[in-house]
Design a protein around this nucleic acid. Structure first.
Lengths: 158, 158
DNA sequence: GTTGATACAGAAGTAAATGCTGCATTTTAG
DNA sequence: CTAAAATGCAGCATTTACTTCTGTATCAAC
């Protein structure tokens, strides 16, 4: 009895609120109310409820990676030496503490982890790769440098 | 002369503002001013400047993928048949219109595109994969289903 | 030393957020 | 089918926040 999404039904207005806040998360409540054709009070009631029910996990600014000197991205496939079960935990604990690692996913099919890196340059990549291959249990890695970001949705994690 | 980050220097307060808004993008300006030890007016001046200079690209709500029935994620490597140059454009135009495709990156090394999918189920995956392999120029694909999200930073695109 | 530019705090007017009351529509029970 | 209860909404009043302006301090250039 810890999760399994409650039987909460989102009506059309709730969907519009989520959609609007996903695209424009810092508009005022009255502005949001106008866009969803509601007055201010029921609008904020719905937003509070969506937050409490977990549909909205938080709000954040979308920063420019290139402006902040993190214009290079790369994916690294990592295969672990699976002789001991502790290897996975050790790898995870280590990788979350590498700031350049923007994402880390455990995947099924061929290798074990897929990492997404945000970097300032290829020199930075070399340094980070050195740290990753030295992590305990890392058997081999394969890097794919991003040449062009074709599509990037925002708002939903995972 | 189209990009190459302007010689704008971010001081400590700017960094704190970006950091604060990245984690909590819907706090009021006075609350933000308190956290960065500034009064309201210079605080909003800085935020406006950071927006105009492109450091802040926007604001958005972080929605719960599992609550919205999109708890499954997968990566798909796509290799194209590179006989014609138009193939790349055709593929990109088509893939951005598939809503399940959350990200699409053109990569160097081994294959051509890496796609990140957000899905409701494995049935949905089957349907989307069918659409992708039928796109013009697609030679082969390889899918890696995400078993566990180990790390996910937010705020910075790419 | 003077000028100019930048960054800040404080105050005033405006706008928004919050909480309350009442009304309308829908649900549930009888 | 009717009556009671619940839900969802708009409107209003109070509190709070936002916005713009003005004045002052700091720093750099001349």
């Amino acid at each position: 009895m810890t999760q399994t999404d409650k039987p909460r039904t989102l009506d059309r207005i709730d969907r519009t609120i989520l959609d609007t806040l996903q695209k424009d998360g810092r508009i005022s409540n009255v502005e949001l109310a106008k866009r969803v054709n509601l007055s201010a009070s029921p609008c904020i009631d719905r937003v509070r409820k969506l937050e409490q029910d977990g549909f909205i996990e938080g709000y954040g600014a979308k920063l420019s990676a290139s402006k902040l000197g993190l214009g290079t991205a790369a994916f690294i496939q990592v295969t672990l030496d699976r002789t001991t079960g502790a290897v996975f935990d050790q790898f995870r604990d280590a990788v979350v503490n590498i700031p350049e690692v923007a994402e880390c996913h455990m995947v099924a099919g061929g290798f074990d982890y897929l990492l997404k890196l945000r970097l300032s340059s290829m020199e930075a990549y070399r340094a980070v790769l050195g740290r990753i291959v030295d992590l305990p249990g890392v058997l081999q890695t394969h890097t794919y440098v991003v040449i062009e970001k074709v599509k990037q949705d925002s708002g939903l994690p995972v």
